[in-house]
Computed example of a mutant assay.
Amino acid sequence: MKKERKMFQVSWRVIWGSSLVLGILASIPKLCEQNSKISDALINSSISFFFSLFIWYYNIYALPKFTSRGSSKNFLNGRLFLSVIIGMITMILIVIAHEELFLVSRSDARVMFEILSFLINLIVYMFLHLLFQNYKTQQIGFELERTIAVNLGAQYELLKQQVNPHFLFNSLNTLKSMVEMQDPSSADFILKLSDFYRFTLESRKLDIISLGEELQILEAYTYLLKARFEEGFDVENQIEPKYYQCGIPPFALQLLIENCIKHNIVSLDKPLKIRLYTENDFVVVENKIQLKMGSLSTGVGLDNINQRVLHLTDKEIEIDKNETEFKVKIPLIHDYTNN
């Protein structure tokens, strides 16, 4: 579900709290005068308080709004000038209203109130401008994260599509040979081929599956390979059942087996032995090195698996290689959600 863009808002606590502070600050000069009256200080304070409230709501709702439509990039602009003019007029009206309400004269202090209106206007506008710039920065960060997530998702979907299409061609050729030779295992081969592609279609929709499900896919896959290579190929599964509920990217093991066959000799004279086991929360695929003549690894298959693992966890695959053995370790994912 697409997340809606959050509108810019200023908390009422900020508006009323800052207005109250400005009102209190405006009363301090009056309190410091000789023969000052508390009533005069309260009047000055209330004038500043109500003016500050007006300026806050005017800037938010009438300049026009600071919303997702955006605002001017420059701090000094026509909106600030208009706010200052309207603010001065509003301050005069508030002062006159106080004079009529409290039956006092503030005509001698109107210049002071106009200067005060300018300062309050500038403070509120500056604070609102900073809040809005912070809001835009957060929105840019949100859009960047969303774009990265969409991009990673698209890349991951592409990675999942890289299961070798030549496997189907080879399997059909094997089936053709079995049918021509009237091999009694042809029916079983067809069932395993059907199972494998059913697993493939079901698992393509998932980012992660259980290790047990992955081993089911691998069982069907290796059956098809053994029908092709006979005793020249063998996979020994030594993975403990307690790890079967751990998560793993779909087709990760199948791609590693495919990688072994691609780069190593597979024959009756020199059978390829592959061993699966677990080690420190990693599932390990190990084979003896018996490279084909002219075999050159581009690393595309291993990079595919590594990118898919990184999409799901913060760990990477590990590769151990010596003169005789090649090991690839895939981190197991605990407490995953299959979705």
Rank of each mutant, 00 (worst) to 15 (best):
E114P: 00
H129I: 01
E4T: 14
S107I: 04
N173H: 03
L256I: 07
S39I: 03
F233Y: 11
V14P: 08
S186K: 01
L255R: 14
N339P: 00
S48A: 15
T147C: 10
S297N: 05
V285M: 11
R13K: 12
V104M: 02
L253K: 03
G87I: 00
L256P: 09
Y61E: 12
I148P: 01
N306K: 07
M88L: 13
N264A: 03
L224S: 02
I38H: 03
K73Y: 15
F51M: 05
K321M: 15
L152N: 12
L80N: 09
A41S: 03
A109I: 07
P250V: 05
Q139R: 15
I15M: 09
P184D: 06
D281Y: 13
S185E: 14
T137I: 10
K242G: 00
V10R: 06
S185W: 02
F50T: 12
D234W: 04
F81Y: 15
I94W: 01
Q133E: 13
N44E: 10
L215V: 05
S267Q: 04
F102V: 02
F54Q: 05
S52K: 01
L332Q: 07
S72C: 06
F142W: 07
Q139G: 04
Y61C: 14
K329H: 13
E114G: 04
F196D: 00
L172H: 02
E318C: 14
F81P: 02
E230I: 10
I43N: 00
L225M: 11
K327Q: 15
L20I: 14
S27N: 00
Q238V: 00
R308Y: 00
K327H: 15
K288M: 11
T174F: 08
V150M: 08
H263D: 05
M88V: 11
L310N: 13
S177A: 07
I140Q: 12
E143G: 07
S72E: 05
T324C: 06
S36E: 09
N339V: 02
E157F: 05
F8G: 05
L101N: 08
E143Y: 12
L31A: 04
S36I: 06
I209Y: 03
I148T: 11
I92S: 09
Y244R: 08
Q162L: 14
T298N: 14
W16A: 09
L175I: 08
S185F: 04
T222E: 07
G78T: 02
Q34W: 10
A97Q: 03
N322G: 11
I148C: 06
P271D: 09
Q162R: 15
I319D: 15
K136V: 14
R308L: 00
N322S: 14
Y125H: 08
T174L: 03
V309Q: 10
I217S: 12
A149I: 11
N170L: 11
L218K: 04
F229M: 10
T324V: 10
T174W: 06
V163N: 04
S45I: 03
A187C: 13
I60L: 15
K262Q: 06
H98G: 08
Q162K: 14
E286G: 06
G78C: 06
E258D: 06
I274T: 11
